[in-house]
Nucleic acid binder design. Structure first.
Lengths: 233, 233
DNA sequence: GATTTTATATGCTGAAAAACATAAATAAAA
DNA sequence: TTTTATTTATGTTTTTCAGCATATAAAATC
């Protein structure tokens, strides 16, 4: 993927529109510390333990954020979509990363240098407040997720993950196909189960007419039933 | 428990010391919207679904924050200790509570009225930034917790919970007894297991000489071994 | 102090899901 | 192409843990 001058400008404007409360003078400052880079599918953007160097924004593509679990079993904690930030948690907490980020599609990644952003944050209350708000919202998701991942049964967890993916990435033009193509392994990492069980459970849902599978394409045929499966656990 | 004038003053100073970056003028404003109340052991401070009316601070006592799970099985998401805030997530996210808070000891609870605090937050960048930092740290805990609760085995989860309680509330003067006295049921809710299994696993750890049990008193005899059990899963 | 309720303890059974084993299909590389 | 690796699929076994039953101990209430 080639990054054009237009891409950079567009990406920068996109990032700025996310930074609510940003003043023109601050925007100029950010511009100077704004960089872009491309990542091929499968490439690692940052690793657990790395030191954050800035606020990372996904301009194009899709990224998974995951933690390595006990027996090498990964757990996906978040899925990023275009015009969303990644790695901000560690940055704002002033910690090293505690998870890794990997492009699951060819992606364009932008970065605002750390010191520049922190300086603005410490002087711009409205911006800090808005970011605080979104991190607090994210914390709510995380807490809810902890409960569902621990308490729902396999079918419920997978159903919830599929709805989560649909809500995050949307549907293709047919209004049925989830607009993201994950491996069964990633789907398992997202739903806290083994790859075998993800495959098995997908097949079962396909047999029941809830889904239609075609490789990594997943069509939701019966959204109502999927929702019920998710809610019943 | 009776709240004295001295308690209120002391509580207010404690809260203010937590609010880094607070200006004297803002402190005066907060003072006017500052209230205190007592809760007996077992009393509910707020419920899932309630609307936050302010920033709640625990001055004395201990509080558990928990979500009701699928089959009525609770999941404790946080344990609060004196001089810590509770319910701030929903407040900052501008949402209703998604968990409930219950005093597990007689407690004194203070509250700063919502609009007053938000007004200050929106104009005080340093304060917002510091709160952002601590919410980001909390999000890190939550993400790590999701992985351990889903991937560690029962023994590992319980061992981790016990170390968490020790780190949160500290030890009695004997330097061995964890300074919090939870029911087996709460210990189970904290560790994502059934009460039976919490009891069973505690007994097993006592048999192995890792713990000493005396009702709800839990002594950690072999901290090194407990840590190993937690880390091995 | 007696009675009721609640909390703790322990054994047994069964369901759920992991672990393991293989095979087929697909994708990537030689 | 052919070979090699990776992903997907499915069957079998084993482990873990929940569910249930029951007994005892401790607390709370009368």
């Amino acid at each position: 993927m080639v990054i054009t001058k237009m891409d950079i400008d567009s990406a920068f404007e996109g990032v700025c529109s996310l930074l609510i409360g940003l003043k023109p003078r601050e925007k100029d400052l950010l511009r100077k510390s704004f960089t872009c880079a491309t990542y091929k599918k499968g490439e690692i953007i940052y690793r657990d333990g790395d030191i954050p160097t800035g606020l990372v924004c996904l301009y194009k593509g899709k990224v998974k954020i995951y933690k390595e679990g006990v027996g090498g079993r990964d757990q996906i904690v978040r899925m990023a979509k275009p015009n969303g930030f990644i790695g901000y948690r560690a940055l704002f907490a002033d910690e090293n990363y505690i998870a890794s980020a990997q492009a699951i599609e060819d992606s364009i990644i932008c970065e605002i240098e750390k010191t520049c952003l922190i300086k603005i944050l410490k002087s711009n209350a409205l911006l800090s407040y808005h970011i605080l708000k979104s991190v607090a919202t994210e914390l709510g998701f995380s807490n809810s997720r902890t409960v569902t991942l621990t308490q729902k049964h396999i079918r419920g967890r997978l159903a919830e993950s599929l709805m989560f993916l649909r809500d995050t990435y949307g549907l293709e033009d047919d209004d049925e196909t989830i607009k993201v193509y994950l491996s069964r392994e990633d789907l398992a990492s997202l739903s806290n189960m083994t790859t075998s069980n993800a495959i098995r459970t997908l097949s079962a849902l396909a047999d029941e007419g809830v889904l239609e599978l075609d490789g990594r394409r997943i069509k939701i045929l019966d959204a109502y039933k999927l929702d019920r499966i998710s809610n019943l656990g």
